[in-house]
Design a protein around this nucleic acid. Sequence first.
DNA 1: CGTGCACTTGACAGCTGTCAATGCCGGTGG
DNA 2: CCACCGGCATTGACAGCTGTCAAGTGCACG
Lengths: 250, 250
Amino acid sequence: MHEDEAIVRFTSLTGLKREELRELQGLAGPLVRYPAGTVLKEFGEVTGDPLLLLEGWACSSVPMEEGARQIVKIHLPGDLMGLPNLAYTRNVDTIMSLTEIAVRIMPRSSFGTMFERYPRMAAALFLISLEERVTLMERLCFMGRAEAARRLAALIVQIRDRLLKSDPDLGLTFRIPLTQSHVADMIGTSANHVSRVIQDLSSRGLIKWGRGKLTVLDMPGLLDLAALPPRDVAHDTAWLPRPFFSSEAN
Amino acid sequence: MHEDEAIVRFTSLTGLKREELRELQGLAGPLVRYPAGTVLKEFGEVTGDPLLLLEGWACSSVPMEEGARQIVKIHLPGDLMGLPNLAYTRNVDTIMSLTEIAVRIMPRSSFGTMFERYPRMAAALFLISLEERVTLMERLCFMGRAEAARRLAALIVQIRDRLLKSDPDLGLTFRIPLTQSHVADMIGTSANHVSRVIQDLSSRGLIKWGRGKLTVLDMPGLLDLAALPPRDVAHDTAWLPRPFFSSEAN
DNA sequence: CGTGCACTTGACAGCTGTCAATGCCGGTGG
DNA sequence: CCACCGGCATTGACAGCTGTCAAGTGCACG
């Protein structure tokens, strides 16, 4: 993914102006690359600056007792990682790359700048945070109520939806750099059980999943199983501050 | 709770100045009271304005299939309710009062004003949102990994911690306006099972719970069972914009 | 005193964690 | 080319937590 595209995704929901995007890029640090499996932030350590993910996959997880962990979010290009740490002195999660990744550091001070000088950008940041909250709410519902097969179906649908945003031509077969262990840590079961559930979905003719490659065979069936609550993605941003630079109305 | 106290709680984490608090109050609408059991927002309906809760308890829940629901948050005095709706056109959860409550409407436009004219207040709002996110992350972990007894223990500890913030003298016995059905919808089990789990905790001598009154008999034991991850509550707000009015340093 | 709601209790089945063993596959080194 | 190895995935057995159903209890309220 080209860097501009990632930045555009980051700000798409508020319709920020091109000039504002440039300012945002001006606040970011240089591009840095890491190999797969790199731990970028460790839970409990003193917080650093948030990171803007530009290429590759990463994930945030919270360590539990005895080596277990819960993955709380998959990061895709365009995502800001480590944002919640702004409110704490120690990292609230562990951030690790799942593939080779490219990131830019977003210095803490740049967020102060945003709030002081670029209110629309700050508001965009706020909206992104609210969306994350809703995503977590949704996952919380599934975790508490649904059985593993449905949680897996919902996970697949949600990941594909997010991938679609940056690649509208994404087919029904695509790469997912997640092992069954990762999936287990995401949907809250054992890696053992994930194997059973995947085979269950396969035998129902819904998906095919192997070697990091996932194929959705029956999307309506998968959606039906996932039974995600309807969520209106259209955003009402009429309350946002007026654009800073542009002459045209938003 | 006196209104000022609630407002102070709302903004405590960023050390907002007294003048800013007054501005915040100026943005809010008049005080409105509702009896227990009032539905203030209904999931899926067109969004209205967020509400600042000043007295009483309320909860946000997401309806699931067949009348089931997941309670995603308990609102206590000082909480802003319905904030995530700012990013959507339809309510992402149902907000219902658990006791008699008093609220003030925070018009959508007032958030635009905050971002334009009171960057520190906007940043405070942002931080609150990040905290909510972390709370949800934590609950997600428990929902996926812990058995019901531990989830209940964690719930009790967390609620008491939040009550302590507004009443530092809170003893080990306090009122909780939650039925076992509510608890079930919070920790993701059946109301039936909640009864069993409460009796389990009781027989272990950890708590006593009846008639809306909860007594913690063995706090260390309860904390041990809950096994909440250590979370540094101190906030690093050095990146925040400078105070708007005051002359003193923050 | 009757009604309704909240809570309790018991039985049973089902999903899922755990343990252990096995299979598969890619990479490494000879 | 082949043997070995380690990580990942599969499979089976078993126990435990938990949902469901159903019946019963107790309390508050009118």
